[in-house]
Design a binder for these strands. Sequence first.
DNA 1: CGTTTTTGACCCGCGC
DNA 2: GCGCGGGTCAAAAACG
Length: 305
Amino acid sequence: MDYSSRINTSLDLNLNPRRLHEEFPKKEVEHNFFSLGVKKSSVKEQQSSSALVEELKRVSAENKKLTEMLTEMCENYNAMRSNLMEYMRKNPDKEQSSSKKRKSENSFNNSAPKSMHGNSESSSTDEESCKKPKEDIKTPVSKVYVRTEASDTSLIVKDGYQWRKYGQKVTRDNPSPRAYFKCSFAPSCPVKKKVQRSVDDQSVLVATYEGEHNHPHPSQMEPTAGSNRGVTPCSGSLSSSAPTTVTLDWTKSKSSTDSKNITPKMDAPQIPQVLVEQMATSLTKDPNFRAALLAAISGKMLHNN
DNA sequence: CGTTTTTGACCCGCGC
DNA sequence: GCGCGGGTCAAAAACG
């Protein structure tokens, strides 16, 4: 796998034009890269590191922009879903006949908005919320679609929590096995997770979360600046509505040196702006993230050389 | 040696 | 009541 060719720190969000190459003469970067381990302080190196800080700021801004886009997208999705609900209410007999419990795994394809294509989109199964009112109130269900390498056979979805596998089954409607996990971070945590490959796209893992964590997120246990309560954002507000769905594409971050430390956790579609900024801040403060970023930037530049 | 994973057995709800 | 299928249990194996 070509490590450096896959990492592009710019997400082309039109935040800033790519001015990296103008600011970094290649030799200087190379010098900076190879002298990372050796404590040397030259004027050039300081310039390079300040440029790196600039780059870091740019990436942080992009990250912020991304989360804003995600929030906006989720809002659009919610609006679309409510439209769909309204439509289904007006045309009840058209949709009702096929609502069976065992079709719930497949149904996201049928109810997905037609304007989207590919498999990076996600939609909730409205029928789930309609068919199981009791359970929805008690145990909120959310779905996360994770794109992985197709060759990767492990049903592991890194979401920052600690899971213990307690079962695996081959279900009727999907040839790939479904794995059952319990949250093992706290003994009393009731959250369960089911992970199964998508029928349509074997490279997509479908993780279904049931319940709410009754403990802080492990990554937020460490002393960071005033994290309010340190609980997974917004999960409580979703308990009575349809299952939440989020799509993540982790295939690109997989080559990162320490991607598990920056695992995105997106249980909720609507992320408060304060939280977004906290996430961005904590990312930029994380030494592991900085090191990984540094390696990625340096690797890309060396590759371009 | 403690923890986690594997996997067959078992339980339970649902449809016929 | 019976069979089917999803979900869970628990003993054994694997792992660190």
